[in-house]
Nucleic acid binder design. Structure first.
Lengths: 136, 136
DNA sequence: CCTTGCGTTGAAGCGCGCTTCAACTCGTAC
DNA sequence: GTACGAGTTGAAGCGCGCTTCAACGCAAGG
């Protein structure tokens, strides 16, 4: 209980824990401009705030849906541009949304074909074992 | 009509055209063992057959669903093992199938969140423009 | 005092999945 | 013969998204 902090900021280790992004990745994202305005303590260490966490959560959603870093960077730069860029941000997200849906339809078509192959192999295995369900 | 081929084999350029894999990628896949048993013409050039094309189509489905080359390679090696490996191939495909579905669900959850953000931006843009639908 | 732990930086390194390059070989056309 | 187009090989290179490394700083504890 000796070293309690009064404020609501997090160390890089805590932030890493919460977001699943490694400390190296957090520093990397900051270096390339994906994350910015991170506060520093008097010791020069990063102190992340709730708003930073929320932004990272959003970045993670973009990443999960397959947006490349360049795309996220474009969004981050628009965001820095303030209210004037809302329309552009909307368009960027819509394009991404459409692309994700297209891509996932393709994945689902391929997955269907793989499902069929699995069915084929299941029949093969069944024949090979005889039709006796299971044994021993 | 002078240089017609009698057989049903394809050059690397034709195969590339049909599969969407570049000639370099076709050679690369062969080099690492993803594709094998490719015939050669008397001139030493590759001559792809229907069976090769079918295998590539399957590889493409694995790739589209996000299987890394190491995974495809594992499958290719089992395939070379013949009938004895059918069960293992089945298991490999089932694991992949399950993984793709899990990943797809994660993507869809993130996409939902992005959809909400889009909704948010749409409301912002609407306000900013006034409620007058459109102008000029 | 010195060690320990947690952080900092800039630069280099890495695994993946191809792509590109340089040098060479064919078969065909002129 | 010469030039062209399509192919061959082994080796090197590349873009992406981090990760690792080396050297250092700083505050607390023993």
């Amino acid at each position: 209980m000796a070293t309690e902090r009064i404020d609501a900021t997090l160390t890089i280790a805590e932030t890493s824990e919460l977001t699943g992004l490694s400390p190296s990745t957090l520093r990397y994202y900051e270096r390339i401009g994906l994350i910015d305005g991170v506060q520093r303590g008097p010791d020069g260490r990063r102190r992340y705030q709730a708003a930073d966490l929320a932004w990272m959560a959003f970045l993670l959603r973009l990443r999960t849906t397959g947006m490349p870093i360049q795309g996220m960077l474009a969004f981050a730069e628009l965001r820095r541009g303030g209210d004037a860029t809302v329309r552009e941000r909307l368009e960027l997200l819509r394009r991404h949304q459409a692309q994700v849906r297209r891509r996932y339809e393709a994945v689902m078509r391929s997955l269907d074909a793989i499902d069929k192959k699995i069915g084929h192999y299941e029949r093969l295995v069944e024949e090979r074992d005889g039709d006796s369900g299971r044994e021993a």
